[in-house]
């Protein structure tokens, strides 16, 4: 039954990756920025929650506060940096380098303010508690990862199809030049998108941190995996990105049967290279493309 357990763990990982993937896609398809600093927001969210919980604040409040702060940080990044670059018609390369610089800023701020070392949520007693589902054992943080991920995905889908703001965001994403002419105010929309994505990405960060451990620099790996999932799934839909992430999580865990864990990222990446050589358009046939 080890196999079932591996699959279950893979699904949990896939859910965490999935939230990173859908929030990254949301930013990318709307604003057109390849937001690598998203990994920095991810790190910041986890550490904020850790810090607050250490101060004795109730856990739910910690997560909520971390989400609010990260939303503000995301909005500030958009207003203070990306918007300026977009208005100046900076090339994608310039946007990307700025985003990379931001990533370094966020990660190292976390390392300086909190700690550069690996840390765990020591103040949360229930984080090691295991629930049994037949042959499968899952910790409470793992279960919460799954629940929050599905909540995030369906929440985002509901938001973008059923609410006015959500529909406005989609309209901007589908045609940015047109949006500028009409009264959709794309730059205002970008701020919302960054805030929403930055808040949601706190969830997987906290629950991965609870279940395993945190380290300021490891989030790049999470983001890379998420982006690989996004591309493999084909850009365009929230559901597609999330499903591809689940597959990705399971595959990454399943290969653990044959290869040691430390090689898993190398293997994932190699598979990805081979994959895009043969299927450059992704599984679901929409090409990754910058919002134009």
């Amino acid at each position: 039954m080890l196999f079932l357990q591996l699959i279950a763990d893979g699904l949990v990982n896939g859910c965490a990756i999935g939230v990173v993937a859908i929030t990254f896609t949301y930013v990318y398809t709307t604003t057109g920025v390849f937001h690598v600093a998203h990994a920095g927001v991810f790190t910041l969210g986890g550490y904020l929650a850790w810090y607050l919980s250490k101060e004795g604040i109730p856990f739910v409040l910690c997560v909520a506060l971390a989400m609010v702060i990260c939303a503000a940080v995301g909005a500030a990044i958009e207003k203070g940096i990306y918007e300026k670059l977009l208005k100046r018609q900076a090339t994608p390369l310039v946007q990307l380098i700025a985003s990379l610089g931001l990533l370094a800023v966020l990660q190292n701020l976390v390392a300086i303010l909190f700690t550069p070392n690996v840390l765990q949520f020591e103040s949360i007693a229930w984080r090691m508690k295991v629930l049994h589902f037949g042959p499968i054992d899952l910790t409470i943080p793992q279960v919460l990862t799954v629940f929050t991920a599905f909540a995030a995905v369906y929440g985002l889908i509901y938001f973008s199809t059923k609410t006015n703001l959500g529909r406005r965001i989609r309209a901007v994403a589908s045609n940015r030049t047109l949006a500028e002419i009409t009264r959709l105010k794309p730059f205002e929309v970008y701020v919302y998108v960054m805030a929403i994505s930055s808040a949601l990405v706190v969830l997987p960060s906290v629950f991965i941190g609870l279940d395993q451990a945190m380290q300021p620099y490891s989030s790049v790996l999470v983001l890379l995996t998420a982006v690989i999932a996004v591309i493999s799934g084909g850009l365009g839909s929230i559901r597609g990105a999330f499903s591809a992430s689940l597959v990705m999580g399971i595959v990454q865990n399943a290969v653990l049967i044959v290869v040691p864990g430390r090689w898993s990222i190398a293997l994932t990446f190699t598979l990805f290279i081979v994959f895009i050589l043969f299927r450059p358009t992704g599984l679901f046939a929409t090409k990754i493309r910058r919002a134009s």
């Binding site: 390849f34 890379l224 690989i228 430390r262 190398a266 990446f269 450059p280 990754i288």
Partner: peptide, 28 residues
């Protein structure tokens, strides 16, 4: 090669990936 054949931002991914894989290989 794979990312140059395609347009867009694949190169970002392969570049990050190469860096991370190389570090994993040097370590392991």
């Amino acid at each position: 090669l794979p990312s140059l054949r395609l347009e867009g931002d694949y190169f970002v991914v392969t570049s990050f990936g190469l860096q991370i894989v190389a570090t994993a290989v040097f370590m392991n």
